Computed example of a mutant assay.
Amino acid sequence: MQIFILEDDEAIGIGLTYSLENEGYAVTLAKSVGQAYDIISNNDFALYILDLTLPDGSGYDVCKKIKKKGDLPVIFLTAFDDEVNVVMGFDMGADDYISKPFRVKELLLRIKSVLRRYNKETADGIIRLQNLIINTNEAKVYKGNHEIILTAMEYRLLLILLNNRGKVLSRNQLLENIWDIDGDFVEDSTLTVYIKRLRDKIEEDPTNPQYIKTVRGLGYIIEDDK
Rank of each mutant, 00 (worst) to 15 (best):
N119L: 03
V87S: 14
R117N: 13
K67P: 01
I66V: 15
G93C: 08
L115W: 03
D96R: 07
Y118M: 01
L109R: 04
F90H: 12
I98R: 10
V84Q: 13
I66W: 01
M88V: 00
I66N: 03
S113D: 10
F80G: 11
L107Q: 06
K69F: 14
D82A: 05
R117F: 02
G70S: 07
R110N: 08
K69P: 05
D81E: 13
L109F: 06
D96C: 03
R110E: 00
D71F: 01
N119G: 07
M92D: 13
F102I: 02
K100N: 09
S99D: 10
R110T: 12
G89K: 00
D82I: 04
L77F: 08
D91N: 13
V86G: 06
K100W: 07
G93S: 08
L77W: 01
R117M: 10
V86N: 14
D96W: 03
V87L: 12
A94Y: 01
L115G: 01
D96A: 09
K69D: 00
R110K: 15
F102H: 03
E106L: 14
A94K: 01
R103Y: 07
D91H: 15
D96I: 04
V86K: 08
A94C: 07
V87G: 05
V87F: 09
D71W: 00
V87Q: 10
T78I: 13
M88G: 06
K100T: 05
G70N: 11
K105S: 06
L115K: 02
L107I: 07
K112D: 15
V114W: 05
F80C: 10
E83F: 09
F76C: 06
N85F: 07
L107N: 07
P73F: 03
I75F: 09
D95M: 05
K105A: 04
E106K: 15
M88I: 00
I111C: 10
M88P: 01
Y97G: 11
D81S: 12
M92Y: 10
G70D: 03
K100I: 03
V104Q: 09
T78W: 14
V84C: 06
K105W: 02
L108A: 07
F102P: 01
D71Q: 11
S113K: 14
M88D: 12
N119K: 03
D71C: 08
R103S: 15
V87P: 02
F90G: 05
V87A: 14
L107F: 02
I66T: 02
V74K: 03
R116F: 05
G93V: 12
L108V: 08
G93N: 09
D71T: 07
L107Y: 02
V84D: 09
K69M: 11
V114F: 08
K68P: 06
R103T: 05
D91Y: 15
F90K: 11
S99Y: 05
G70C: 08
S99K: 10
K68W: 07
A79R: 06
